[in-house]
Amino acid sequence: MADLSVSLCGIKLANPTVMASGILGTTRLLLRRAAASGAGAVTMKSVSLLSRGGHPNPTILSFDAGMINAVGYSNPGLEETLKEFADLSDIPAPLFASVVGQNADEFSRVAERITKLPFAAIELPLSCPHTPGYGTLAGQSTPEATFEITAAVRKVTDKPIFVKVSPNVPAIGEVASAAEKGGASAITAVNSMGPGMLINIEARRPMLAFKMGGVTGAALRPVAVRCVYDIYKTVKIPIIGTGGVSCGAHAIEMMMAGATAVGVGSAVFDGGMGVFAQIAREMEDWMDRNGVEKVEELIGAAHR
């Protein structure tokens, strides 16, 4: 039987799948349900200092090659989040927090409190393409800003920091290097790309209320694989390869590009919460057929 377990910054995952931030991660009970249905690890919906209602609807739609969303970081804010996730002891997989801010100071103020919760790591998305004041719209995905924010958060937590990067940059390796220098423990690659737009031709109007939104799912996958491949060449820290993974073959491809773990988001749309277990099963089948005993042997295989 193939061994699907991976060690990510010392955190043991039963299989390499990680439920990506913003997918079902709004409450403790949903994280528990996703973990119980087979995810190797689960990530909470990103939290900001103050509560945010997010953009009006429509916020999430699908198209023939993926999803588009402009949720706009809706979340109940730091204080409510501290209550919601105070006790995570009955969740059968490692959990990752996700923290966003408008500047380095806000990131560290939120991270300083969130680090006290029983999450195994803290993810910092510096890469949302559709929320004014945050991510790429606030210039957080440059190497300079990435270094500054990562270093600021490094000062307030001893936990592993995952820096989540945008695919929309000319040299993603430089951004990942800046994160590594700032003290990141891993890189999550990637966040949604774009923003993109879908227009309803009868209404002659963009369909998302924010007009544009991040593109995820199938359309993102080849871009994400290339990003992971580039990052693997430039940094030593592990990578959580994320973007368009919906089956075992995609997850294996992501690992061959250099990922230690594999983020899964949009695939929940088609596959439901069972998609994590399904991906793990398909990986196992492939490994058995190809005589691979440990999934960790596949990490970076495309580079050798």
Partner: peptide
């Protein structure tokens, strides 16, 4: 309160149900 309508965003949760 509902957003996606198809089980992705986790907004409309009640207990561990969507």
């Amino acid at each position: 309160y509902m957003k996606c309508g198809f089980g992705l965003c986790g907004q409309c949760t009640c207990g561990d149900q969507l």
